[in-house]
Design a protein around this nucleic acid. Structure first.
Lengths: 246, 246
DNA sequence: CGCCTATTTGATCTGATTCAAACAATGTGG
DNA sequence: CCACATTGTTTGAATCAGATCAAATAGGCG
């Protein structure tokens, strides 16, 4: 996509999809010390109740934000990919009110709050970019609320798949409409607030309508326009600089 | 509650419920120029697609954040009271992805982005407080998502009423468990993602169980512990400094 | 091959919607 | 100050989207 920065830093790539950074800011971000770790699937990175002193940048893999309710049901509140910092909020929210964990084997980098604060102090523009990032996170929560409150299951699944494809495209994880999606149908169900069985039946619907092909971890959108319509999807809420061909 | 600042500025009151401000910071906030306006019920303050150059502080009244979906259904995504700045996000989100409007006659104060930015530049601590405020907003969205995805209607209504009572208490709009609530049942329904009819039947349930009394605009919680249990309510997600006797 | 996890299918049940109408409350103008 | 209009609440009956329970099938992998 950007031939002059072929291997740019994941955060830089992500932030540049939603805002503009100066060369100096890019360099400053890239210079922040990272502690990289490889994690297997289904590992928690932070749990409800934790008081983190670091944030977690995703280098590669697939994470989710979730909460377990009193009767044991799980609600997934977001999916996160390369370049995302799902717990950026811990900079100003001391006690976590939910958990973040891997759904697939992932490579993550931990960054001390200290370092981020220092970065923001020196480059207020980076602080604004981070703030904007958390605000976009909130916009996604709102959009999911709209789905759960006022859209039926077919639209919700279609909408979610559209969102994921656009997010993948925005950080260069795909250039067409096929993505490598390490999600089970029961995780989809937990994200959309429906049962696994129902999620399965509706997914089959989408396949039967030739909107998508989805086997194993490979999701291919066969009819982008059709899927967007089915999901009532408008990428405006993602607030991307260039709407990644949506 | 705080006898030494009997008539403190609404934002100050709100921010001090979630963080600590210095005297200097308090004064700086109180000095920001406001353009006060009185609005009737059902007036939009910002609409989806707008590019605001100011934020709106609620002096008194009752607003909501909402979005209309393609088939005309409305999803309410939050309720806002005295001290809230529901569109603080417009500082870093250029194009609104939803609308904010009054549900009751309200007094609001508009503040130019310019002035807020200047304030943050001079007092980074205030910037942090504002950032934290938007993060708490996001935490509320998440909690509503959990409700819509994984809680039944009775728990959702109970949870919402608990949240409102705690918010009222946090800014001193009540000191007991009775609040003046200018909400119709169909607004409740639009917030919880259910039909008006169903919201009504379930509300009657809560009354029949002697958890609440709700006539006209007066809501009284008759059994706080019981209502919290019915709603699976834990105020941690509101991230208040002192959990307002929850 | 055999185990474990994920997907799929069928049958049944239920929480919630929809449609329709009655009823109550509140406000407005004559 | 009453008659009417408007908006909100309540009730009933029919229907449906989605949940639940249970079991079969299909994949992936050591």
């Amino acid at each position: 996509m950007d031939p002059f920065i072929p291997q740019s830093h994941p955060i830089v790539r992500r932030l540049e999809s939603i805002t503009t950074l100066s060369a100096e800011e890019r360099d400053a971000i890239a210079a922040v010390p990272l502690i990289v770790r490889d994690l297997k699937a289904d590992n928690d990175i932070i749990r409800e109740g934790d008081r983190p002193s670091q944030c977690c940048l995703i280098i590669d893999g697939f994470l989710c934000r979730y909460k377990i309710v009193s009767d044991g049901k799980r609600q997934i509140m977001g999916f996160y990919i390369k370049g995302d910092i799902p717990d950026l909020l811990s900079l100003h929210i001391d006690v976590m009110d939910h958990s973040v964990g891997t759904l697939a084997a992932s490579k993550v980098a931990f960054i001390q709050h200290e370092h981020i604060r220092e970065l923001i102090r020196r480059y207020p523009g980076i602080g604004d970019a981070f703030w904007r990032d958390t605000l976009i996170d909130a916009a996604v929560f709102r959009e999911w609320m709209v789905g759960m409150g006022r859209r039926d299951t077919k639209a919700r699944i279609a909408h979610l798949l559209c969102e994921l494809v656009v997010k993948y495209r925005a950080v260069g994880l795909t250039t067409n409409y096929e993505i490598q999606l390490p999600l089970t149908q029961s995780e989809i169900a937990d994200a959309l607030g429906v049962s696994t069985v129902h999620a399965n039946r509706v997914t089959q619907d989408l396949r039967a309508q030739n909107l998508i092909s989805w086997f194993g971890q490979k999701l291919a959108v066969l009819n982008w326009k059709g899927l967007k319509e089915a999901g009532d999807f408008d990428p405006a809420y993602l607030h991307l600089k260039n709407s990644a061909a949506a």
